[in-house]
Simulated assay, not measured.
Amino acid sequence: MALGFLVYLAWSLHASLGEVLSQTNGIYLVASVFFWIGAHLVSPFLSALSLSRQHQVISYETAFRIHARNIIARYIPGGVWHTVGRVADFSDRGLSPRRIAGFVFLENSLAVSITLALGGASVWYFYGDGWGIIGAIGFFAGLIGLVMSRFIVNRWVVSGSEKISFAIYTGCIVAVGFFWAFAVAAFLLYLHAFPGWALSVSWLQIGGAYLLAWGLGFLAVFAPQGVGVFEAVLANLISDSLPLATTAVLISGFRLIMLCADTAVWFASRPIFSRRR
């Protein structure tokens, strides 16, 4: 339904969209794709760190191959199949269900905690009442998530030698932080590709708004991958020179950047799979 509305808006606003798109700078779009590819290269560090123990180490190469070979499953409706595919592959390697469950929990909790904390702090600082209050709530909720995630995993998910040390947990936070740094850079480059889209807000504001919008979209479990929710929240936060609907449609175009990067990683890694097989 969300995609249908976005397509309808794009069709009904084709005149104003055409004016903005006519000045598109393709170099920035290509750079945006490469930065999202960089995010994919960083992402496997989290699984390699959180799943490795002294008696069984998961290398970065293994984590990347599992990440890349399942990446196309992100586009199966439901939004969870990339995770399901990786869980199956890690299980085939003899990892215990509890350790895998701990990784899945950390991957999701750290993503939403970091985006809410950083994005919420930025929105709280730059915006007044309304969105500023939402940003403050997101900031404190994100901080609580960062403090509690390791405790929850060690208390209720894993036990004994499979517990996650503070050093490993810190490394996981750093890995997720770098992933979102690449993601924000990719989005800013995407916006820079449209010189006709004059934004009066700063790049720091946009980066924070992007993170908060993604975090809120993640929490909206009724919308796979936050489709519609992410675009609506971010458009409300950065829309000024263009109508809200036009801004939302332009933001939704960033998903095409993600699709191009995902496809590139999947195809580029196919020879690796063939050799390993």
Rank of each mutant, 00 (worst) to 15 (best):
A183N: 13
F140Q: 03
L189G: 02
M148L: 15
A193G: 09
V158C: 01
F166E: 07
G128D: 13
S149E: 02
C172L: 01
G160V: 01
G132T: 10
W156C: 01
G207P: 07
L146T: 01
C172E: 09
W197I: 10
A183E: 15
A209F: 13
I168T: 09
I206P: 10
G132M: 10
V158S: 04
A193P: 03
A175Y: 12
S165L: 01
V147E: 07
G130V: 06
W124G: 00
I144Q: 04
I152A: 07
R155T: 12
R150V: 01
V176G: 00
I133C: 05
G207C: 08
N154T: 03
G177C: 09
A183W: 15
I144V: 13
Q205I: 11
W197P: 01
A193T: 00
V176Q: 14
G160R: 08
S149Q: 01
S165Y: 08
G171F: 07
I168A: 09
A141P: 04
S149M: 01
F126Y: 15
V176A: 06
Y169D: 00
L191Q: 03
F187V: 01
S159W: 11
L211S: 06
F166Q: 06
M148D: 06
I206E: 10
T170R: 14
H192F: 10
G132K: 10
T170W: 15
I206G: 08
W197H: 03
V157R: 05
F182K: 00
V201E: 15
W131T: 00
S161N: 10
E162N: 03
H192N: 11
G171H: 05
W203H: 07
S161G: 00
S165K: 03
A167G: 02
F126G: 03
L143N: 01
F187H: 11
E162G: 00
A186R: 05
F151T: 08
G160H: 08
A209H: 11
G135A: 06
C172Q: 07
A209I: 10
I164K: 07
G196C: 05
A193H: 05
V157Y: 12
V176R: 11
S165H: 02
I144D: 03
S202R: 09
F126L: 14
I168G: 00
W203F: 14
H192K: 12
L199V: 12
F182Q: 01
F187I: 04
G207F: 13
A181R: 04
W180D: 03
A136P: 05
I168P: 00
L211C: 09
K163P: 04
S149R: 00
D129S: 13
G171V: 04
W131N: 00
L189N: 06
G207R: 09
Q205S: 13
V147D: 03
L143K: 01
F178W: 15
G196I: 10
G142M: 08
I133N: 14
G128L: 12
G135V: 06
V147R: 06
A167F: 15
A183I: 10
G171W: 11
G196S: 02
I173S: 03
L199H: 11
Y125E: 08
V184N: 05
I137F: 15
G177W: 11
